[in-house]
Computed example of a mutant assay.
Amino acid sequence: MSAVLDKLETPMMQNAASAASSPVAANEPVAVVPEKKTKAQLRAAMDPRARAAQRRAILLKVIPPLLGIAAFILLWEIIALTSKGSFPGPWPTAVEAVKIFSDPFYRNGVNDQGIGWNVLSSLQRVGLGFGLAALVGIPLGFMIGRFAFLNGMVSPLISLLRPVSPLAWLPIGLLIFKGANPAAIWTIFICSIWPMIINTAVGVQRVPQDYMNVARVLNLSEWKIVTRILFPAVLPYMLTGVRLAIGTAWLVIVAAEMLTGGVGIGFWVWDEWNNLNVHHILIAIIVIGVVGLLLELLLIRIAKAFTYEDHH
């Protein structure tokens, strides 16, 4: 019996001794903490082909816009050279722009103000007209999309009035409001309302019928149907209408201010034309484009923030 115990104890003691002598077994459990690598180490560890592809992608994003701008400036310079001095080139325009933007908010009277005040005045008119159009157009779009009878009643009127040029509504505004500023706001309102109505109505009509069936089974009120079902589903369409409306509004305000006068970027362009100051007209064109681009980018960010996509 003792011989058997000796044979059993010998391998057990050997296993214990080997376990004690093994550093991994003695220190179990071992928590391996991954070492944080710096960006330089990650770039060094990246496959050369992956690094080359990354550099190529960056260049494809940067080089084409730079080439487009360079081609535009070159074409501008060619036109200036062929015009024999009647059309200013890029460099004289840039020098004049530095002078203008060194003091954009000066005031030397009602009709002599810096470009900053003119842009702010135009944005104020756009904001008022656009805001009123949103207050009227979005609820009206919900009702048109929700009720077939109202859709059939209003759709012919929208189809008739939507193609009318926005500036054709300006004399109506002058006749009704007896003032240039409210007439310009009225013009912005009437040109901004159509994209909001149409896109909102289309969004409501494209809501899956299953959602409406569930609402009918649950006996939801019209307010809950709008707020819980329609609004989340229609929001992307509604924001698309808002983007289209703000772009149209910014286009129209320049033309409207040329006709009505007062303070505004459109009036500033027309006033500089009367003074034969082509440098300032070119600067105003660039400013109008930059402001329109910033408005578009702002609304795109808002649309992305409120648009939910399923990622599988």
Rank of each mutant, 00 (worst) to 15 (best):
K61H: 08
E28W: 12
A45I: 01
E9T: 09
Q14C: 04
V4Y: 08
Q14M: 09
Q54M: 11
P34F: 04
A57P: 00
K39C: 04
E9C: 11
G68R: 01
D47Q: 06
L42N: 05
E9I: 10
R43S: 06
P34I: 02
A25P: 03
L59Q: 09
M1K: 07
A50S: 08
A26N: 05
T38S: 11
G68T: 09
E28F: 15
A17T: 07
L60Y: 06
M46I: 03
L60A: 14
A57W: 06
I63K: 00
S21M: 13
M46N: 05
D47A: 07
R51A: 06
L59V: 07
R56A: 15
I69S: 04
A50D: 06
A71R: 01
A45R: 03
A45S: 10
L8S: 07
Q54D: 10
E28T: 15
R56G: 15
Q14S: 13
D6N: 10
I69Y: 04
R55S: 12
V30D: 04
A70H: 00
A25Q: 15
V33I: 12
Q14W: 03
I63V: 15
A44F: 03
N15H: 05
R56K: 14
A26W: 07
L67R: 03
D47S: 08
K36W: 04
A70F: 06
K36L: 14
Q41D: 13
A40R: 05
D6E: 10
R51T: 01
V24P: 00
P11I: 12
M1C: 03
M46T: 07
N27D: 13
S2T: 12
V4R: 10
E9G: 04
K61R: 14
S18V: 08
K7W: 13
A3W: 03
A20G: 10
A3E: 13
A44R: 06
M1S: 11
A31K: 09
A16G: 04
P64R: 02
V30A: 03
P23K: 12
L67W: 03
A57E: 10
R49A: 09
A57C: 02
Q54T: 09
R51H: 02
L66D: 03
K61L: 14
L42E: 13
V32R: 08
E9F: 12
P65A: 02
M12R: 12
V33Y: 01
A45V: 00
P29W: 02
A25D: 12
V24Q: 15
A25R: 13
T38I: 00
P65H: 00
A31M: 14
P23Y: 10
L66R: 01
N15D: 09
T10N: 11
V32Y: 12
A17Y: 03
L42C: 01
Q54W: 08
E9W: 09
K37N: 01
P64N: 03
G68W: 01
L59K: 07
P34Y: 02
S18G: 03
T38N: 01
P29E: 01
A44K: 08
A44S: 10
P34H: 04
A57I: 05
P48R: 05
V62M: 08
